Computed example of a mutant assay.
Amino acid sequence: MERRRWDTDQRFTGIASGQALGSGVKRLAEVLDREGWVAEDPEAHLLPHLKRVCDEPGSRWRLRSARLQEDGVYEVEVEPADGQQAADLPIRDAITLLAPVAEASFAVRQVDRNTVECVTGMLDGDGDYAAHGHLIRLRVQN
């Protein structure tokens, strides 16, 4: 098993644990189990923002489709603009697409070469409204 964390790593270990920011991440993870936390109507709350990003001049994305899954995940199919390949679009580009729908808590994970998952929402005490959120799965098609 490889112990290096990147190609030039010579330390094989980091400088600290992640506990300094762990409480916020734990709060987000805990609220995911709360029945009814995922907000309704992603077509109204998310889709207009995602469309706007895709329609901007120079956008790296084209929106193909979006559909709410039974488990509450809003699955959004995009394709690279200008003939790029999915592998040429790093996770930073996915975050640029997702940033306009980000709320007080925002976590993004690249699952595989063509899938990026995002959890975004408000936790108890984050603002004027009740805790709520969204689950988004980007599927990048070529």
Rank of each mutant, 00 (worst) to 15 (best):
F12D: 01
D9S: 02
R92V: 12
L68W: 06
W61F: 15
D55W: 09
L98I: 05
Q69M: 10
L47I: 08
Y129S: 13
H132M: 05
A94G: 01
E79D: 11
E75D: 11
L46C: 06
D55H: 09
S65T: 09
H132C: 09
S17A: 14
W61K: 01
G83K: 12
V25S: 15
W37Q: 02
E2G: 11
R27D: 15
F106W: 10
G36I: 03
L89I: 06
Q110D: 03
G14F: 02
G22H: 13
S17F: 06
C118K: 03
D9H: 06
T13W: 13
G36Y: 02
S59F: 03
P90L: 12
A94H: 00
V31Q: 10
H45M: 11
E2F: 06
V108T: 07
P100C: 12
E35K: 13
A87T: 06
E40F: 06
T8R: 15
G22A: 13
D128F: 05
E75Q: 15
D128V: 09
N114F: 04
R52Q: 08
A44G: 13
L123A: 14
R139Y: 03
L28H: 04
R67T: 10
A44M: 12
V73Q: 05
D33W: 04
T115F: 04
A99Q: 13
A81Q: 09
D82A: 14
E30W: 09
V73Y: 01
L138R: 00
G22I: 03
V111D: 01
A81L: 08
K26W: 10
E43I: 04
N114Q: 13
A94Q: 01
P80D: 07
A20P: 01
V78E: 04
R92S: 09
D41W: 14
G72P: 01
A20Y: 12
M1W: 10
L21S: 14
K51W: 09
G18K: 13
T13L: 14
A102C: 06
E2N: 15
T8D: 09
W37C: 01
R4Y: 03
A94R: 01
E2A: 08
Q10R: 15
L21F: 15
R11V: 04
H134S: 04
V111P: 01
E40C: 03
A102T: 01
S17T: 14
Y129E: 14
S65N: 13
P57H: 08
D88M: 12
L89M: 14
I136N: 01
F12E: 05
V140Y: 00
D124H: 12
D71W: 05
C118F: 01
V38N: 00
S23V: 14
R34W: 08
L46V: 09
P57F: 04
D71H: 05
